[in-house]
Design a protein around this nucleic acid. Structure first.
Length: 445
RNA sequence: CGGGCUAUAGCGCAGUUUGGUAGCGCGUUCGUCUGGGGGACGAGAGGUCGCAGGUUCGAAUCCUGCUAGCCCGACCA
């Protein structure tokens, strides 16, 4: 993409409404524009990051054997009356009446809808296990939206639902989700810690939230710092292997890690003092096992091996995709702007032309641009007629992980400069070498 | 939902106390110079002062009502 043709309305000054750093940077980098309280338009740069996260979530869900689908944003109130939640959910649910006077709602979650789909099409244990999920916009009419996309009213979320014939099978689904979530967050360059949590309005027995540590987090968290050293890495996971998933879950849930809601001082005191940490965290996902809560209420049964009709065991799992954009920025930025992890960066490499209009610099940049595009390294080429300072500041603000700086001074010696956004370190290399290095960097992202 | 506050050019703000022809910085347009960390100078464009009513010779400014948004708290992915 050429910056001269890209819609990137960056701001030098911080809009008054933004308080926390991710909100400020998203506005300044031209990623979002507020449409009304807690509701945002996603401008090209923000949309690109959002799609990247969505892609990663899809890839990891499919890897775990789950079925992508898409349910509507508007739902009929009837299903919610059946589960009893139409009354229970309260003011956070946006209720709408259509022209025929039918009660509708903008879905805050999809347990009812998915259970209805399930009961209409699945009758036998032979069709289980089954996990369906979608990534869709949700709406919760927060009393006080704030922090930009971190706590909006409209938000983009992956929510999935597993259906199993027994509690044991459903608990494997729970473990499988924990592993796939760990992998998802790790791919996004995040350290998200599973913490025992309260089940809230979803209900259920077993639940963990995933929290990213950041000073601006809404929750107070307490944990054993040993958990920070855990890494899934490239270990070979078989998502159908109950023992392996269970072992990985144990690995991550053995060190103490809880939010203030479930914090237990006595058990925390058993953690070695040097490892005892407390800080703040941003919740970026949650998994639940809730048994037969919805299948009982909505009569979702399957025939088991003995020929008996039994309510199906369920769980649900969510990842706040739009919120993650903010959470990643909270976890990865500096005074100059955003620092995208390579895996989620909207553009992989930035090209800065220091002398727009000069034959040598333009030619070298065009060649680099073409080569990077050919190799799928998605460059953003700052071809505007701006001064060097403005171009550097823009690249830093929008957080492009690697920058290739092309100027007459270097070209005289046949070199360009390759700079890491994260460390600020630069190396002078030939243009070919710069491309080769970028290719190597992104080969294993 | 309780408490506090704001609304003036695309963005950040002053002007409101004490009514009298709407200003500053950034951005933007044109020109000249400049050219490796948001450059300089010059010349422009851009605002029914959130909306509706009222008081007044005259309202951004005073009064009434509404709307939108922000902050703290309680609540939440």
């Amino acid at each position: 993409m050429r910056m001269s043709r890209y819609f990137l309305p960056i701001l030098k000054e911080t809009p008054a409404e933004a308080q926390i750093v991710s909100h400020r940077l998203m506005l300044r980098a031209g990623m979002i524009k507020q449409a009304s309280a807690g509701i945002y338009s996603w401008l090209p740069l923000g949309f690109k990051v959002l799609r990247r996260l969505e892609d990663i979530v899809h890839e990891e869900q499919i890897r775990a054997g789950h079925n992508p689908m898409l349910m509507p944003t508007l739902q009929s109130a009837d299903l919610w009356r059946e589960s009893g939640r139409y009354e229970d959910y309260g003011e956070e649910m946006l209720r709408i009446t259509d022209r025929h006077g039918r009660d509708m709602l903008y879905g805050p979650t999809n347990e009812e809808l998915i259970t209805d789909i399930f009961r209409g099409h699945v009758q036998s244990y032979k069709d289980l296990p089954l996990t369906l999920y979608h990534i869709q916009w949700k709406f919760r009419d927060e009393r006080r939206p704030r922090f930009g996309v971190m706590r909006g009213r409209e938000f983009f979320m992956k929510d999935g639902y597993n259906f199993d014939v027994s509690k044991e099978a459903a608990l494997h689904a729970y473990n499988r989700h924990m592993v796939s979530y760990l992998r998802t967050y790790e791919r996004m360059g995040l350290k998200a810690i599973p913490m025992r949590a309260d089940s809230g309005p979803i209900g259920g027995d077993d639940t963990h939230e995933f929290l990213v540590l950041a000073d601006t987090g809404e929750s107070e968290v307490f944990y054993d710092s040993a958990i920070l050293d855990l890494k899934l890495g490239d270990r070979d996971v078989d998502y159908d292997n109950w023992d392996q998933c269970s072992a990985i879950k144990d690995e991550w849930t053995t060190p103490y890690a809880r939010t203030d809601e479930t914090h237990n001082e006595a058990r925390f005191a058993e953690v070695p003092e040097a490892h005892r940490k407390s800080s703040r965290g941003i919740e970026v996902g949650q998994i639940f096992y809730f048994g037969t809560k919805y299948s009982d209420a909505m009569n979702a049964k399957v025939v088991n091996e003995e020929g008996a009709h039994v309510p199906v065991h369920m769980g649900s799992h969510g990842i706040g995709v739009s919120r993650l954009v903010g959470a990643i920025i909270e976890a990865s930025h500096d005074d100059n702007g955003i620092i995208w992890p390579e895996s989620v960066a909207p553009f992989k490499v930035g090209i800065v032309n220091l002398k727009q209009g000069s034959e040598e610099a333009d030619g070298a940049c065009e060649a680099l641009y073409k080569e990077l595009n050919a190799k799928g390294l998605e460059p953003i080429y700052d071809d505007r007629n701006e001064r060097a300072g403005a171009k550097f500041a823009t690249m830093d603000l929008i957080g492009i992980p690697w920058r290739i700086t092309v100027g007459p001074r270097g070209l005289k010696n046949g070199v360009v400069e390759l700079t890491s956004r994260k460390t600020g370190e630069s190396v002078e290399v030939t243009p070919e070498e710069a491309v080769a290095r970028c290719e190597a960097i992104y080969a294993d992202v």
